[in-house]
Design a protein around this nucleic acid. Structure first.
Lengths: 256, 256
DNA sequence: AAGTGGTCTAGACCACATT
DNA sequence: ATGTGGTCTAGACCACTTC
C-alpha cells in the first residue's frame, strides 16, 4: 500500500469500487461492463494524467472478477488509447493531449473534441438513377434506383464539409424521413451499418463544390469515399465527403 | 468430422499441423508464434476465401496449446482483418477483395499489395538549423541542430511521393549513414520508433514540390505529417510526405 | 443434438521495474 | 524482495448456428 495513495484508500475509494462493480442483473459481459465504467471514471477525472491505475490484481479482488476478465476490460481501453501499460511498472492514464489517437479520428468526433458544435443543412434529398460507380460499388441491379442525400456539414455555423450519400431505394425508400443522422435512421429501420471502408484522397475542388463550400475552385480538399456495410456484409451506403482542408485534418496513430 | 473436409484430414493436414506447431526452443509467446504461422498459411492459400478454418478447439488439441491461447492468436488476425468470426458458425477467411482493411494502409504497404516495387532516391541529406515548427514539435533546445533527409519515393520507377524527415542531431548524428530505411537505421542505433501520430490533410502542390513530383503546381496532394516517438515517449522524427493523389490513396476500415 | 464461438474462473509461472 | 504486467493452462458454462 503506497503511502502516497493513502488519501484514496479510505471511504473515497470504497464508494468508487462500488461504482465500478458489475450489475448483478445485467446480461452484458463482465469485461464490457467494467471497461465502460472504468472509461467513465477516467473521463470523470478519477485519476490524473500519467497516474497509475490500481493494479490488475487489485481490480480483480475488489470487484470480485477474475484477473483475466479485468485485464480483458483494460485491453479495450488500451485499444482505444485511453490507457498505456508499462511492463513491471503499472497501467497509466494516457495524457489528454495525446489522446486524439485511437484508430482514425474523423468527422464530428474531432469537432466535438475541439469544442465545436456540429450541425448540418440539407441541400437535396431525392430519388435518382444511379451512376455507373454507384451501380458497381453498391452492387445494384440494372434498373434499381437510389436515394440520394446531399448536405452541408457545419461547425459553429461555418461550412466544413459537403457530404453526398447514395443508398439503394430498398434500404431507404423515403429519403425525406431521414433526420439529422443517417446512421441513426438506418438503425431504427433494422439495417444498421456495422463496418465501413473509407478511401481518403486529395482532390482539387470543382466549381460546384467550391461554391457550396465557400472556397475558391481548385483549392485542395480531402475527399473521403465511404462504403458502409450491414452485418450481412451487404454494401448499402456510398458516401462522398469533401472536406475543407483549412478546417479538417485527420489524425491516426500507428504502432509497431 | 464433416465428410466434405475429409480430403484435408489425412496426411495433407498432418504435415500442415506440424507447420503450425510452436517451436520448442523459441522464447516468443505461443500465441504470437501461432498467429504468425497461421497468417502465413492463410496467405499461402491453405484455405479459400469464405472457407471456415478449423475450430478453436481443434487448433487447441492438434497444436497442444490451450484454447485460450489459440483464441488469442486468432484475435490478432481478427484485428488485422484477415479472418472473421461468426458466432455459432465458425471462423472464416476474409475474402481478398475486402482485405485492404486493417487500421490504415499506407506507404509501401499498399504499393507492395498492388504488386509495385517500391524504391527511393535521395534528394539531399545534411545538417540544418531547425525551423520554428521543428523546434516545437521535436521539443528542441534553442541552439540544437537537426539532420534533414529528403527523398523521392518511387514505385516501378514512377515518383509517387516526396518525403522530408527531420531528426535531432543527437539521434541521427550522421545523415549519410542512413540506408534505404530510416526506421531500420534507428532500430540499429537503439532508438526504435514504436509509435507515431500522423496528420493527413490536403494541400495544393507548391512549385518546388510539383517539379520534383512531376505534376503541375496547384494540383491537390495528400500531405502526411508524421511525428515518431521512441519507447520513452520522446518525439525524435518529424516527417512530411507529399503524396501524388493520382497514385496514392489511403484506405481505412471503421467498425461499430 | 452437436458443434462453434463468447465468456469466465482460479491458479500458475515468467519477465520486468522499483525499492 | 515485492509488485506489476505478460503469458499460459484446464475446465466450465452460455448463446448461437446448423442439421
Amino acid at each position: 500500500m503506497a503511502p502516497l495513495n493513502d488519501h484514496l484508500q479510505g471511504s473515497h475509494m470504497d464508494s468508487r469500487w462500488n461504482a465500478l462493480k458489475p450489475e448483478e442483473t445485467s446480461t452484458t459481459p463482465l469485461y464490457l461492463q467494467f471497461s465502460r465504467k472504468l472509461a467513465e471514471a477516467i473521463h470523470a477525472g478519477w485519476w490524473q494524467a500519467d497516474e497509475a491505475l490500481p493494479s490488475e490484481r487489485t481490480f480483480s479482488e475488489e470487484l470480485g472478477i477474475s484477473r483475466v476478465t479485468a485485464r480483458k476490460a483494460l485491453d479495450v481501453l488500451l485499444e482505444q488509447g485511453l490507457i498505456r501499460r508499462r511492463h513491471g511498472s503499472g497501467t497509466f492514464i494516457t495524457p489528454r493531449l495525446e489522446q486524439p489517437l485511437s484508430r482514425l479520428t474523423s468527422f464530428t468526433e474531432m469537432l466535438k473534441m475541439k469544442g465545436f458544435e456540429p450541425s448540418s443543412v440539407w441541400l437535396s434529398r431525392g430519388i435518382a438513377t444511379p451512376t455507373h460507380e454507384e451501380v458497381i460499388k453498391l452492387g445494384l441491379s440494372p434498373n434499381a434506383q437510389v436515394a440520394r442525400l446531399k448536405r452541408q456539414r457545419l461547425a459553429d455555423g461555418v461550412v466544413m464539409a459537403i457530404e453526398q450519400s447514395s443508398l439503394p431505394l430498398t434500404y431507404l425508400p423515403d429519403p425525406q424521413a431521414v433526420g439529422s443522422s443517417l446512421y441513426a435512421y438506418l438503425d431504427t429501420m433494422g439495417h444498421p451499418i456495422v463496418r465501413a471502408l473509407q478511401h481518403i484522397r486529395a482532390v482539387n475542388a470543382n466549381p460546384d463544390i467550391a461554391a457550396i463550400a465557400g472556397i475558391k475552385p481548385g483549392e485542395a480538399m480531402l475527399l473521403i469515399t465511404r462504403i458502409g456495410y450491414t452485418a450481412d456484409n451487404v454494401a448499402i451506403e456510398l458516401t462522398d465527403t469533401w472536406c475543407r482542408n483549412d478546417y479538417y485534418d485527420f489524425v491516426a496513430e500507428l504502432r509497431r
